[in-house]
């Protein structure tokens, strides 16, 4: 469709003697489609890069164009708790269940987010973090809702799980763009979605999407699956390893003394 549109636009432009506005597209790519969590996993970095393709040159549209890159991990419900002092001791008292929050969220743009994309387009394409946080009916009312959501965002930001980098994308020669996000070691498994939005005058005119599969592999996969699917045998194996190690230690100790 897009290509047909482009051809039509091109044809129209030729017919009208170049009196028509330039058409822009975004061409994007990500550095990897798969992240394996194995023994030495310390996190990973994904690069999102690409170019703005135009149907003709020279262009004078750079001021109006913007790029927004978003990477989002699987959503999960989260409980946020707040400690209160009770008889001198700090105890978890209030809690709110946030029905859905992304386990990882990163966004970068060529400028401040809402100078790059309009609020209407944000609603349509669910770009900002607020669009991904769902808390239906906070127990403590509206104030609590705000406070607990803020706490969630703050804690996840400190862990490197929520990243917001307005102005974090540089356009090279008004054509090339590149950005990268660090995924910390405590990310959850699942499908992560990367999305590149090309905007003109804060309206989305084109987008590119890709998926990244994050999965434990090898021994880590085996151990995790065993602990969830066969907890009884997992426990037997854990105990057997401990007994074997205990026996070994005792024998080695005897050998030393003899």
């Amino acid at each position: 469709m897009r290509r047909v549109g482009l051809l039509l636009a091109l044809a129209a432009a030729l017919a009208a003697g170049a009196a028509v506005a330039t058409t822009q597209r975004v061409v994007g790519a990500i550095s990897q489609n798969r992240i394996s969590i194995t023994g030495g996993f310390v996190g990973s970095e994904i690069f999102v890069y690409g170019a703005i393709a135009r149907d003709r040159f020279p262009e004078d549209d750079a001021d109006t164009l913007g790029i927004v890159v978003k990477v989002i991990g699987p959503a999960q419900p989260v409980t946020v708790r707040r400690k209160r002092r009770v008889n001198g001791v700090w105890i978890n008292r209030e809690s709110e269940r946030i029905d859905s929050a992304p386990s990882f969220y990163a966004v970068a743009a060529t400028g401040p987010l809402f100078e790059t994309i309009s609020h209407t387009e944000d609603i349509r394409h669910a770009v900002s973090l607020e669009r991904h946080l769902r808390l239906v009916g906070a127990q403590g009312g509206a104030d609590a809702r705000e406070e607990f959501l803020e706490a969630l965002v703050r804690l996840r930001r400190e862990e490197g799980l929520y990243v917001q980098r307005p102005g974090g994308i540089e356009l090279v020669e008004d054509v090339l763009f590149r950005t990268s996000f660090k995924l910390p070691s405590n990310i959850v498994e699942g499908v992560y979605r990367a999305r590149v939005l090309l905007t003109r005058d804060r309206e989305v005119i084109d987008m590119f999407e890709a998926e990244i599969g994050v999965r434990k592999e090898g021994l880590e996969r085996l151990m995790f699956d065993a602990s969830r699917q066969q907890p009884f045998f997992y426990a037997l194996a854990s105990i057997a390893i401990a007994l074997g190690a205990g026996l070994l230690a005792s024998e080695v100790f005897r050998l030393f003394r003899a």
Partner: peptide, 15 residues
């Protein structure tokens, strides 16, 4: 840890 004012009173847990 029990009696000192925590730097961060909020905490997260999987629901």
């Amino acid at each position: 840890d029990l009696v000192a004012t925590p730097a961060e009173p909020f905490s997260l847990a999987p629901a």
